[in-house]
Design a protein around this nucleic acid. Structure first.
Length: 272
DNA sequence: ATGACACATTATATGTGA
């Protein structure tokens, strides 16, 4: 089962790129961020035509998240991150699909720092920490995928010195991400490629992609049950080189099929 | 320190992004 995350930077503006990539990569499940589309302007029909059903949480102009599936029905379990009834931004959506719980998120950018946007980012992180504490220990595999707007370490930034005070790289933000991992989540990309330079975002200007001057800010976290099934993970750099493309590239994980329960295991479970 | 570029809006300048 292949699960991907892709910050499309405008789901309608990028629809040709998104459809081309879906046809090429054929992921089973995809979390999208930065739809930049109100709820009724999501391209549901075009995606269905491409073989994907979808759930989405739109918002005019900014934010917006969706989950697509071509290989199993999406059973939505949550939209919106709990913990702040005043937060109306569309940044979190969660669904069960094919025996896996999948969450798609778009963490606040947080710039400028310091300031109210940065404070909102830290509070969002605290709410995420509280919610993920409930998910990490589930027996079912859980996959948290999205644009976290955090470079976790120096290795994830092309020139770390230029980003020290930025809201994507500030010590408080790196610490908040590290606290998530301490709950027991596996950073799938870093786990599969411990020593590589990996980027998922490149600015549009100054030939950043051609120079490979990028950032690693899109992440996929796995709870222990999902990590036990991790086969591979990588960045799909191909669509970043296309015309009229997003400034992010898709990130994906491949999970092995669930082990078939043995007769004795089923018996033990039903007896418990 | 600044800017490069691109998205959206019942737009034609502005806010946001990273």
């Amino acid at each position: 089962m292949r699960i991907a995350t892709y910050n499309v930077n405008g789901v309608n503006g990028r629809l040709p790129v998104l459809l081309r990539w879906l046809a090429l990569a054929r992921p089973d499940v995809v979390c999208l961020q930065e739809l930049k589309a109100p709820q009724d302007k999501f391209p549901e029909a075009a995606l269905r035509e491409a073989g994907y059903e979808a759930i989405w949480h739109g918002q005019s102009r900014w934010n917006g998240v969706a989950i697509l599936s071509r290989s199993g029905t999406l059973h939505e379990t949550r939209r919106g991150l709990p913990g702040d009834p005043l937060d109306e931004q569309s940044r979190y959506i969660e669904a069960a699909v094919g025996g896996v719980l999948v969450a798609g998120l778009y963490l606040p950018n947080g710039n400028p720092r310091p300031g109210p946007k940065f404070d909102f980012k830290l509070r969002w992180f605290e709410r995420l920490h509280a919610h993920l504490a409930e998910l990490v220990a589930l027996d079912a595999p859980v996959v948290i995928a999205g644009d976290f707007n955090v470079m976790p370490t120096d290795r994830d930034v092309y020139v770390p010195e230029r980003w020290r005070d930025d809201a994507l790289f500030a010590p408080e933000v790196k610490a908040a991400y590290a606290r998530l991992l301490e709950q027991g989540w596996t950073d799938a990309l870093r786990h599969m490629h411990p020593d590589e330079t990996i980027y998922t975002f490149w600015k549009y200007w100054r030939g950043a992609f051609e120079r490979d001057a990028g950032l690693r800010i899109d992440h996929i976290l796995l709870n222990p049950a999902a990590a036990a099934r991790l086969v591979d993970a990588d960045v799909d750099r191909r669509p970043r080189g296309w015309e009229k493309t997003s400034d992010h590239a898709p990130v994906w994980v491949e999970l092995a099929p669930a082990a078939r329960k043995t007769r004795s295991a089923r018996r033990a479970k039903s007896a418990s």
